[in-house]
Design a protein around this nucleic acid. Structure first.
Length: 475
DNA sequence: TTCTTGGT
């Protein structure tokens, strides 16, 4: 095995991958034994037209005024540097691993690569790269092997799995000058936590390792007619014994799975309307979607007995129910058809940031992206006009505006500036952090996150100064 | 039961 791991973490200006921006990247390359081979840290200047959530800067300790006034590379340069390092590190292949990376950092990375015209948006899951998430492993450990790690509990008794708390409670020590919520520091903490989990809870860790591959879920569900799926509603875990109904047509790696808590024999005579009601009956729903593209880990049937409900039903009955599903093709295709017919249709996305999944870049456009990057700034606009995909033309204008605005035709520059202006002055319900939205969340974030009155006043003043500077540009 | 973690 030649596994390499890339432990990585991002600090950003907020939680919205489309409209917020990465401010710091931290990453550590290790071999299969988690020995450190290389380290990466990239900071980035804020791009015009991107702002911040006050709470995000309070968390990371970033000074709002410093977002523009620093000597860091601009967002385009930083993204290119990130892309190139990750490309090198993942040669021939690597496992990208972080803490809540699959739901948080990954979308951010893709947006950064998309918005900066990097050709391989999906680099963490292509050319034999895969991903794991230590947060997801920790969740399983908290349910099935809670004795192996120390947790704080919330007032309902559920474990709190915040990285900084886990770090402190379990005496993880890191020799690195920065502290929690620094991207490099948190990458190193994630690396150490992962080591602990892999040693103390090898069965769960190895299962998670197998499920890094997107082909594992299907194989696993076929060879384990009864399996255990652990889902979470907030902090509350639910243990489910399930069986495979079938793949969902048109959705790669998505599977409809049946909850074996319910006896399927009693369901097949229901008409469509009644059956559909059972399918959507909240916590009592008879089936649900398993997304096999997100490295979510299924466990073998024996784990479900952690919940007495399943011990009472017994393994024989669970297997009988699973077998009933497997041998009733008609019933399965009915469930899948009903599921498909009742999917909500999403409205067409409008803003360019939301159009990331519209289509993959064509080979020609990929080649043009390289040409765009290597062309001197004075030629970049010219190259950008050759993109077949309109999205890339628009994103190119934003990049050129950032690195060499004087090379843009007057009209292009004006249009983009008008768009930024509109966004900045949008109301407090805008998707991005408009002036009004920042102001609307400022007080609550201050109160929730800063205890010291002096610090509060200071931070508030720095936000106001930032907004005044921005108002001078876009007001 | 219908409660939305965690990441910034």
């Amino acid at each position: 095995m030649s596994d390499q791991f890339i432990f990585w973490d991002l600090e950003t200006t907020g939680r919205n991958d489309k409209y917020d921006q990465i401010t710091q990247v931290g990453a550590v390359l290790t071999d299969k034994n988690f020995e450190v081979k290389d380290k990466l840290e990239i900071h980035s200047k804020l791009r015009e037209g991107k702002w911040f959530e006050p709470g995000a800067l309070i968390t990371t300790g970033v000074d709002p005024i410093n977002l523009f006034k620093n000597n860091y590379p601009n967002y385009y340069e930083a993204s290119a540097q990130l892309y190139e390092t990750f490309q090198q590190w993942s040669s021939p292949s690597a496992i990208f691993i972080g803490f809540n990376n699959i739901n948080f950092d990954e979308p951010f990375l893709r947006q950064a690569l998309y918005q900066n015209l990097m050709p391989e948006l999906y680099m963490t899951v292509t050319s034999n790269n895969t991903r794991m998430d230590v947060f997801e492993i920790l969740r399983l450990v908290s349910v099935y092997s809670p004795e192996h790690i120390k947790f704080n509990q919330d007032d309902q008794g559920y474990p709190i799995l915040k990285l900084d708390q886990i770090f402190k409670l379990n005496n993880i020590s890191i020799s690195y000058e920065a502290g929690p919520h620094d991207a490099v520091f948190d990458s190193l903490v994630t690396l150490e936590l992962n080591k602990i989990l892999s040693i103390r809870c090898p069965q769960i860790w190895n299962a998670a390792y197998d499920f890094r591959l997107r082909e594992t879920p299907k194989k696993f569900m076929i060879s384990n007619s009864v399996f255990t799926n652990t889902t979470f509603w907030g902090r509350r875990p639910t243990i489910k014994a399930q069986t495979l109904i079938g793949g969902i047509p048109g959705k790669n790696h998505h599977y409809l799975v049946y909850n074996l808590l319910f006896d399927p024999k009693k369901l097949q005579d229901l008409d469509d309307k009644e059956l559909l009601k059972k399918m959507n009956d909240g916590a009592k729903r008879i089936c649900e979607v398993f997304d096999g593209s997100k490295s979510k880990t299924l466990l073998s049937e024996s784990y479900c007995f952690k919940d007495n409900k399943f011990a009472e039903i017994g393994i024989d009955e669970l297997r009988l129910r699973a077998n009933f599903i497997k041998t009733n093709e008609k019933f399965c295709s009915r469930l899948i058809q009903l599921h498909l017919d009742n999917q909500k249709q999403w409205p067409e996305p409008f803003n360019i940031e939301e159009r990331i999944f519209e289509s993959f870049p064509s080979p020609q456009d990929k080649k043009l992206m390289i040409e765009f990057h290597t062309a001197p700034n004075t030629r970049k606009y010219e190259v950008s006009k050759l993109f077949k995909d309109e999205r890339y033309k628009e994103l190119a204008v934003r990049i050129i505006y950032e690195i060499a605005p004087q090379t843009l035709p007057e009209q292009e520059r004006r249009n983009y500036e008008l768009e930024i202006q509109e966004r900045f002055n949008d109301d407090d319900k805008s998707k991005w952090n408009s002036k009004n939205r920042i102001l609307a969340s400022l007080e609550t974030d201050l109160e929730k996150m800063i205890e010291d009155e002096n610090e509060r006043v200071q931070f508030k003043q720095r936000v106001i100064t930032f907004l005044n500077n921005e108002s001078a540009k876009w007001g």
